[in-house]
């Protein structure tokens, strides 16, 4: 199916969904199911993950010899 068609039919879906919940009076927004706050950690000695780099570079479509990931050149400088 074409992207445009998915979008068009999708909008009908959205309309149907929003109608189904249109009469909900609630004003409280529940972004999280648990009501925890301030889950933080204390800054600690860092850990360098020695073998991660190779695994990451192996997957990347293009890398350079220094270990950078190669992507597109900026359009505004090209």
């Amino acid at each position: 199916m074409k992207r445009e068609e998915i979008e068009k039919r999708g909008e009908e879906l959205i309309k149907e969904f929003s109608e189904a919940i249109a009469d909900v009076k609630e004003e409280v927004e529940t972004y999280y199911v648990s009501e925890l706050v301030n889950v933080v950690r204390i800054d600690s000695e860092p850990v360098q993950k020695k073998d991660f780099k190779d695994k990451m570079l192996k997957i990347a479509p293009s890398v350079d010899e220094e270990g950078n990931i190669r992507v597109e050149i900026g359009k505004w400088v090209g």
């Binding site: 800054d43 600690s44 000695e45 850990v47 360098q48 991660f52 990451m56 220094e66 270990g67 950078n68």
Partner: peptide, 28 residues
């Protein structure tokens, strides 16, 4: 100037190391 990154425990001294060394699955 923290020792570790904001959402993982990788080091923050990114200038002192070769490319993609201070990284893990989280910060990438």
């Amino acid at each position: 100037n923290t020792k570790s990154k904001l959402y993982c425990d990788c080091p923050t001294n990114y200038r002192d190391v070769s490319p993609n060394t201070n990284v893990c699955e989280i910060c990438t």
